[in-house]
Design a protein around this nucleic acid. Sequence first.
DNA 1: TTATAAGATGAAAACGTTTCCATCGGGTTT
DNA 2: AAACCCGATGGAAACGTTTTCATCTTATAA
Lengths: 329, 329
Amino acid sequence: MSTTTISRYFNHPEKLSDKTREKIRKVITKYGFVPNELARGLRSKRKNLVAIILEKDRQVFLSFPYFSIFSASLLNRLSQDKMYMITTFEESEKKPHITYRGFVQKNLVDGFIVMGMREDDKRIKFLLEHNEHFVTIGRNRKAKNYTWVDCDNVQGGFLATNHLISLGCKRILMLGGYMDNYDMMMRLEGYKNALEGAGINYNDKLILAGDFTSLVLDHPDQRFASYDELKKIIVEQRIDGVFCTSDVSALGMLKLLKYKKIDIPVVGFDDIPLAMMYDPTLTTIKQPIKKIAEKAGEKLIEKINGNGVQSEELPVELIIRESTSKFMK
Amino acid sequence: MSTTTISRYFNHPEKLSDKTREKIRKVITKYGFVPNELARGLRSKRKNLVAIILEKDRQVFLSFPYFSIFSASLLNRLSQDKMYMITTFEESEKKPHITYRGFVQKNLVDGFIVMGMREDDKRIKFLLEHNEHFVTIGRNRKAKNYTWVDCDNVQGGFLATNHLISLGCKRILMLGGYMDNYDMMMRLEGYKNALEGAGINYNDKLILAGDFTSLVLDHPDQRFASYDELKKIIVEQRIDGVFCTSDVSALGMLKLLKYKKIDIPVVGFDDIPLAMMYDPTLTTIKQPIKKIAEKAGEKLIEKINGNGVQSEELPVELIIRESTSKFMK
DNA sequence: TTATAAGATGAAAACGTTTCCATCGGGTTT
DNA sequence: AAACCCGATGGAAACGTTTTCATCTTATAA
């Protein structure tokens, strides 16, 4: 029996006669033969491997729950097609694409999952130029040229804000991440839509952008700047409700409000497991993280297989918990 | 210039003359040549790839903070030596080793990191039989034949219990995971040591084994069995302090105590980020997760490079926070 | 019976490296 | 000057597949 025939058994079994196929099957199961992936990849170019390259400057990202859930779901989806995933970090903060170039040149993977989209993203530019397969989680303004999976951020911002309005809030603080982030811009749009629907004037003094991770990781007793500054804004602007664009910052906000003895409703975004573990449990906009991961994996596989793929926006959902429910009449 | 010479440039540069080396360097940097990893691996057997295969039946594991921190540190260490990591799940719960066999036969990786050690571990048996390189996180009773990295669980159990004793506790509940787990057995030993040192009799009615994840994920208002059962035990046994063998269960315990209005000190184990975010912040035994991961990566690389490697036990540390400090005199 | 086609199988080249062995040139020893 | 050695380089085989192309077998049609 020639190697060619064995190869066909694995790759084009329909081209073998029933007799031969059965004979090979027996021997294979008896001796447990498995083709060498490297040799296979070397010749056929198909490696059954994808890479996810995480941002160097935001490694803390990995320690947040979002990524754990995301990667578990992605892994599950990939393994359905016998694909594996390599995880690594960008080597350079300024030139994030060089790690991608390394992977492309080494010829180690079939495609990439790209997270944490930026405006004018060098990684995307590189991957497009080199005709590599990839799918992004989230998108940016130029989202025409590539395949992305994202949630409906506008709707998320709307639902959160509208919920606060329904509780009687009129001066709603939006505590955001960096506003150059497309996600954040979309959520802000939803926020504005909700205000407009309720006839409330938009006031950009109520929009706070930046990194509020320290809200969560620091302890309010230590009186870090952000705690006191935020309290001041809340009092001076007579804030009566808060929409945080991530659960992590929302939890920090809850901690701050508790310590500063301010009692106003808070809505988060993401629905990480911790949201239902905290005290009070957190009202939030649930992103379908698992589904996003699965879709992304699926679309990437489709692309690698040479098929055309559509981008997709997934719906979000308002999950009402104690951080707002206690303000309901 | 022959391919042989180029190959030498990458693998044994010292064998080239300065002149040749410099000439190659120039061309390489100009055209950005990178050797094809697959071809390299095919011939040399060295793939620069390791695998970490997660337990199928405990996928929730991945969503807990421990793993995020662990894998980030491991990734960092591996990338120092230009090694990459494949993450995937076991395919079968009953036969966890078959996924390992798949990887060995496919010839895709140089070695494995094995987490979640069990007594009589089929995976370890398989890897030893096949002379594969691997390092385990934690150990079991047969820890002689392989390289492991672990923390000092006995000391951890001792520190936690002793701290509670120093607060005046005499009837200390130990809320454990599964006791067939070697980690847990070691922590129990530390618990016993501390009692003995204080002249307190050991009482096995105060040891509770099992999966208390639901303590955290369920809400006490929903009155799941474990909440009421635990409360009953705490009252009937006149428990005056709790040592939980994981932070996750400790946080659940704090939630339970708050809702049942019982005020006793609690110590956890791990020091996940959430421990300092919760209210009250959690006193806990800090495992050097990052260091464990780095050491494991380092030792695996050493093994792959053909060097002998020693197992290593790392120290733990008591971190005192609000969940016990408020009981200090 | 022979020609033709279709299906099944095999031989050999190719993928891009590393490794083994041979060769070449120049310096040192005899 | 011959013999020897050593460092530097190159040629060719090898790694284990997939792919292309050729061949062989068998059934069908002329």
